[in-house]
Amino acid sequence: MILETKTPFCKLCFKPLKEPSFADLFLQKPLICHQCQKKFIPIFHHFYIKGIQGLAIYRYDDTIRQYLYQLKAAYDIEIAPVFLQPYARYLYFRYRNYVLVPAPSTKTSDDARGFNQVIEIFSELKLPIIPVCVKTTDIKQAGLNYDQRQKIIQHLAIINPEKITNKNILIVDDVMTTGATIRAMIELLKTHNVKNIAVLVLAETKVSSNKTINITD
C-alpha cells in the first residue's frame, strides 16, 4: 500500500508545508505547519508534588483539549507525535537516564482504541517505556470531585516490580487535574526499590497549577 505523499502536509490542517528553510537542516522535520504550531503555547511549568519535581509542558487550554479529544475519542493516532515533537530532543536530554512509566488508563477504553494515548504521545521521546502501573478496576475520574479523586490509590497496582528496580523513574501522564493519580503512583513506586522519581505531564489544568504547589505534603 502506498502511503507516501510527494509533498509533506500539515497533520492538522492538511495544507502543504512550505519549502524547507536553511534552519531545517539542523532541526527535525516539522509535522505541522507554522500556523498550527502557533496555537500550541508551551508554559513549561515546574511544580513540586510530594517533594518530587514535576514539569508540565502545556496548559490544558482549548487547543490541547480539542486535539487530545481527537486523539482519545476519534482514535486519530496520527496526531500523537504532534504534541511533543518540538521539545522531544530537549526532553530526551533532560531525562536521558530515566525510564518512562505511563499513568494507567482503563483497559476497556484502551481496547476500544487499539492503543494507549499516553504511550503514543511520549514515545516521541525515544526513551524506554515500562507500563508497570495498572488499574485494577475500570474507574474513570472525569466528573469526580477533589475528595473522590484522592481515593484513586485503592484502584492502582504495580505489576512486575522487578522491571523497575534500581532505575530512575519518570512518571508521565497526558492531563493532570488534581494530581491525585500522580500522587498515588508516587506512593506506590516509593514502596519498591527505585532510585529517583520525576514527573512529566503534557498538560495541567489551571486549578492544579495553583494547588499543586500547596500540596507538597
Binding site: 500500500m1 502506498i2 502511503l3 507516501e4 505523499t5 502536509f9 492538511f14 482514535y75 486519530d76 493516532i77 496520527e78 487499539g114 492503543f115
Partner: peptide, 14 residues
C-alpha cells in the same frame, strides 16, 4: 493519501 493515516497497521481516513 494525505488524509489517510495508519492505526495498528490498518489505514483509516482522517
Amino acid at each position: 493519501t494525505k488524509y489517510i493515516g495508519m492505526r495498528n497497521h490498518q489505514p483509516y481516513c482522517r
